[in-house]
Design a protein around this nucleic acid. Sequence first.
DNA 1: GATGAATGAGTTTTCATTCAT
DNA 2: AATGAATGAAAACTCATTCAT
Lengths: 194, 194, 194, 194
Amino acid sequence: MRQQKPKYKQIIDAAVIVIAENGYHQAQVSKIAKQAGVADGTIYLYFKNKEDILVSLFQEKMGVFIEKIRSEIAGKTSSAEKLYLLVEKHFTWFAEEPHLAIVTQLELRQSNKDLRLRINEVLKGYLDVVDEIIQSGKRAGEFRESLNLRLTRQMIFGTIDEMVTTWVMNDQKYDLVATAKEVHELIVSGCGNH
Amino acid sequence: MRQQKPKYKQIIDAAVIVIAENGYHQAQVSKIAKQAGVADGTIYLYFKNKEDILVSLFQEKMGVFIEKIRSEIAGKTSSAEKLYLLVEKHFTWFAEEPHLAIVTQLELRQSNKDLRLRINEVLKGYLDVVDEIIQSGKRAGEFRESLNLRLTRQMIFGTIDEMVTTWVMNDQKYDLVATAKEVHELIVSGCGNH
Amino acid sequence: MRQQKPKYKQIIDAAVIVIAENGYHQAQVSKIAKQAGVADGTIYLYFKNKEDILVSLFQEKMGVFIEKIRSEIAGKTSSAEKLYLLVEKHFTWFAEEPHLAIVTQLELRQSNKDLRLRINEVLKGYLDVVDEIIQSGKRAGEFRESLNLRLTRQMIFGTIDEMVTTWVMNDQKYDLVATAKEVHELIVSGCGNH
Amino acid sequence: MRQQKPKYKQIIDAAVIVIAENGYHQAQVSKIAKQAGVADGTIYLYFKNKEDILVSLFQEKMGVFIEKIRSEIAGKTSSAEKLYLLVEKHFTWFAEEPHLAIVTQLELRQSNKDLRLRINEVLKGYLDVVDEIIQSGKRAGEFRESLNLRLTRQMIFGTIDEMVTTWVMNDQKYDLVATAKEVHELIVSGCGNH
DNA sequence: GATGAATGAGTTTTCATTCAT
DNA sequence: AATGAATGAAAACTCATTCAT
């Protein structure tokens, strides 16, 4: 685990604000340092380089979120319910951290392919949770036995991610959390009429 | 309508190749010019600036694709079939233009927010097709009457987009088109077991 | 003498307008060509290069002006009167051609040293007129015998030129011609109280 | 007040040399940096942009000169004597700083109108000194009561400036300071024969 | 640990000029 | 004579990172 000195967190929180408010390309290290109340050079005592701030930021925030999700769904037996909690908590998380939503949905994607591969590593933990829900659903007979794990995971993640991105691109001006129920319904039942 | 002189298309095709092979940030105008077999300055006779190459590229390619989709689904009566064609053609399109897939799924997203808003304008035409399929499905009773148009559209687009992105991130090493049937099934029926 | 084809004059007149209205650095050859109603390439049938337009412009306009001055002072016997006419005609000239005033006083000076040396060649004809006035004044006993020709010429030209430049820098908002009498007085009598 | 660190002055002195020797358009920032013995980027820690180097250079040099003039004429009672000192010191200044003479008389004028307006701001301080001399001369009865302040100031400045410019354009090959007495005489008495 | 002054690599875009038609 | 599409050289400025203090 990384150093937990206060400045480490200060810098990450500063980065979220600076990137959300200025955009990725206008989020200079010096701006982040100023927002964090440290000198430019200090950043490099806690992070290898600028890219490392971004990855660490995502790791830190996503890590906490994944833990929260895991503990939320731990007690539930129904996979549909677990899936609902995943969607609802995901939406609630970003609704409560609008700056972070901008950073993850818009700004972080402006990074290069290498960075995105590292981000995908972090995302792996989230996708594992999705996989577990799908597997348990299949075992319990709630979900179709024939589901392709990888495709289903991508459908779920793609849907949720697109919902959040569209909401952010629309300046977060409608109630994202309120859509959780319908989104969950779409994922479980698709658009078909059974 | 833009000029249809060969050089306009030459430059766009060169841009696709150069961006796909070098990445967005290493795709210098001079590299594109060289690939297109024109002088650097010639680029600026056909495009306002570098960003304009990207938007034009997306417009040009997506425009043609949308027309193709529209004509494909024109004769079909079943909405499920239309939806299947949408997925299958989408996957086939990118499978046949691997360079373009890299550009749209990875490189183009590294652009700034402004550019992405302009890209969304182009995407609008695609989403309109999705909307029309959903609407016709609802009218025909194939799809649930209660479907929220916007959310359903986002579920469909998010799923398809995520499939293509994952495939590209995995170096296009599996058969994307082969997944079309299952993806279609997921969209129509969700992951639930009815 | 240069070609007197209509396009030659068209281009020079266009250059005066374009340079005055856009400034030297924004007066592209293509803009001048457009204003003159000819193709870019046509410019090069009448002028060696862009710099040549400027020198020719100055030659053409200044040449006509010098002739006018010469004929004006031809009949006068008093040197003071000749000097007055020089000042008054100079001011009147620019007051009647405000675009040209901007070009000669501000924009033409943004050129490089080489161009300015060529412009000085043209100016030589003007300074000759000044010299002749000084010489005749000395011969007639109107001006001090001890006057240093070169310095006196520079004093006269420097004063007149500074008056016009200041007037142009102040957006030509006061009546330049109205100052001719006082300026003449300053040149003849200096600021001393005799 | 600007920083007085050695680098600020180093860069200004380097700029004077590089601009004088290469001309304004060939005085690239990298050339100035090299001459100053600093990195290109360091220039931008001390100056907003390239134009700012020029304005600062003129401010710095002219500011010092104006102070010198003021202290020189402070003890004098005769306005003619003050005026003589102004001319003589002005000529001596440039004779002692031939590089600076080239820069102010030729190269600085190649700048655009905006820059010249900023330069005029600096020049204001010089013209104030001229005004004070004229006013004191009028009060003491040395100069004509009827003198128009603005015109007289322009006559004096225009004359001095033209003398220096001509001298620079002639490659400083004669003794400028030696002309001070005659120039002063011209300004005070004009070319008339009283 | 903390600082912040200094570094220097790297790229888009403009525009005078040419020349095939 | 006239055109105008094509050329390609050239430079200011930013900003992630370092390192002496």
